[in-house]
Amino acid sequence: MFGYFLTRLGMFIPTFLGVTLISFMFIRVLPGDPIIVMAGERGMSEERYQEMVEKLGFDKPVLEQYWDYLVGVLHGDLGESFVTKKPVWDEFFALFPATLELSICAMIFAVALGLPAGVIAAVNRGKFFDRALMSSALIGYSMPIFWWALLLIIVFSGNLGWTPVSGRIDLLYYFPSVTGFMLIDSLLSGQEGAFGSAVRHLILPTIVLGTIPLAVIARQTRSAMLEVLGEDYIRTARAKGLAPARINGLHALRNALIPVITVIGLSVGTLLAGAILTETIFSWPGIGKWMVDSIFRRDYPVVQGGLLMIAVIVMLVNLLVDVLYGVINPKIRRR
């Protein structure tokens, strides 16, 4: 098992270097000079332009710029934002807990509903439940996030007044951020009603962000379950007279979980991509909106630093998924 883990970890290093190169090049191949974008309609004199080029280090050869960046990254320095003049690292960690909190809730929502939905659909293959659940999943998967979010806001916040429109907590609650996770911080604050407010603020963004992964997980669980339910050992179990709940829940689901876990791992990327829109609509102070704004402003350090951090997180989650395969299926770790 340890050897298997080390092999997976070894593959991490070249991928990491590749990601630093891609994140560095990505923003540079886009047309548009960050200095000119910064100056806007006002423009700037040639002399001032040259001054800025030197200040931002653009006068150096690209390879040298990349090398400086790479050395910085290895020393934990992602540079400073051109716009806010603050270290990218600080900005990322100020915003990331909000994205993480929302993503975890969305994933719990997606798995908690998606797995049972998939199992129920598979067990009732071709029947009403199956058709209803899979049609709903297809609709969920096809739903434009922006439209879906506004629809929920207008119905549940605007018309019914059940949930707040946006933000992470009611503005009347004001306490120092300890962990960056609003659910935990609101509990730590000891202020009455703060935790409830944080939960209410999470409901709509969680549903919006979790909808697509929910649909994917439900469909994947159904097809994996169907495949497993057709296997000989399930027929044997049935012939032995085992209770259907035990067959479906223990024997079939455990083996169907491998492709489902793969999908969950890959959904982390989808969640982070979905977070961009979800965060913008719900005024959620996370990294999604921060990255998009930076691309438009050509804020190189933020774009390359943010991309790198997101890539590392996705890689770490997938490393974890690889390890989980090994735990669930001993055949994989022995290979």
């Binding site: 806001i153 916040s157 605007g158 707040p164 429109v165 946006s166 913008t280 719900f282 005024s283 102070p285």
Partner: peptide, 20 residues
């Protein structure tokens, strides 16, 4: 004085209507 940062114009409108 509180600035509630709300980038989307439709959401700002909903917040105004909801008294937020």
């Amino acid at each position: 004085l509180i600035f509630a940062i709300t980038p989307d114009a439709s959401v700002r409108y909903q917040k105004l209507k909801a008294g937020e």
